[in-house]
């Protein structure tokens, strides 16, 4: 794959891009079809990793870094932890086909495909979002902030308030999880279920305990 062989760099980018996106679609089909939750979580991790590769190719190195760390790392660990906690390995096969979700997703897809007709092609340098605002960041960052990584400059200064909001979001998630999971677990329902299986009429016991 000699880059000097006459093929412009842009073409190679586009070809690898197509290949990666194809893999992404395959993984998604797998996620839809697989019923084993452990496998689903692993496939979701692979999905994120592929997505990170695509982002690298599309020049979004910071985003790729984050997607790999968060999507393939943290998110997978949390999902595995949840699977261990809920002690459920297989998804139940639904007994009837649901039309509404299919309808909604097809409708959303139809609107998008229709809306894409007039969108500028991917990668064109004269798209509206390449000629307004963005050139300011690219040309002025050195004078305004003097930070080589423009993404950092935009993230921390030009749109610093968004990032403050982002930190607040993650803070909210932190205290939300603390609130939801820090209390003593109430596993009465599980116990009741088990007793029901054992002797059939056990569901009165916890009520009496609570009402006495």
């Amino acid at each position: 794959m000699n880059l000097d062989s006459g093929i412009p760099l842009g073409d190679w980018e586009a070809i690898i891009n197509v290949a990666l996106l194809g893999l992404l679609l395959l993984v998604t089909i797998g996620i839809i079809r697989v019923r084993n939750l452990f496998a689903v979580v692993m496939l979701a991790g692979i999905y994120s990793l592929l997505m990170a590769l695509v982002f690298t190719l599309l020049d979004a190195v910071d985003v790729a870094f984050t997607e790999a760390a968060v999507g393939a790392g943290v998110s997978t660990i949390l999902s595995l932890g949840t699977l261990a906690l809920i002690d459920s390995r297989r998804e139940k096969v639904p007994n009837r086909f649901q039309f509404v979700p299919l309808l909604v997703s097809l409708a959303a897809g139809a609107v998008l495909f229709w809306g894409m007709q007039d969108m500028p092609a991917v990668g064109s340098a004269d798209a509206p979002n390449q000629v307004h605002v963005a050139p300011y960041y690219i040309t002025q960052t050195q004078a305004d902030i003097d930070v080589p990584n423009i993404v950092t400059a935009v993230l921390a200064s030009y749109r610093g308030f968004d990032t403050l909001g982002e930190v607040t979001v993650i803070f909210t998630a932190g205290i939300g999880v603390m609130m939801l999971l820090s209390a003593m677990p109430v596993i009465g329902a599980r116990r009741r279920r088990r007793r029901e299986d054992d002797d059939g009429d056990g569901d009165k016991a916890p009520n009496d305990g609570g009402n006495a």
Binding site: W114, D118, M119, P120, N129, H132, V133, A134
Partner: peptide, 25 residues
């Protein structure tokens, strides 16, 4: 909207929507 106008500011967006307003996007 960002792809079509290149801006995120609501007032600026409204200004720049004019030329692209009849696009399906």
């Amino acid at each position: 909207l960002y792809i079509m106008t290149g801006t995120l500011n609501i007032a600026d967006m409204a200004d720049r929507l004019g030329p692209v307003s009849d696009t399906t996007s």
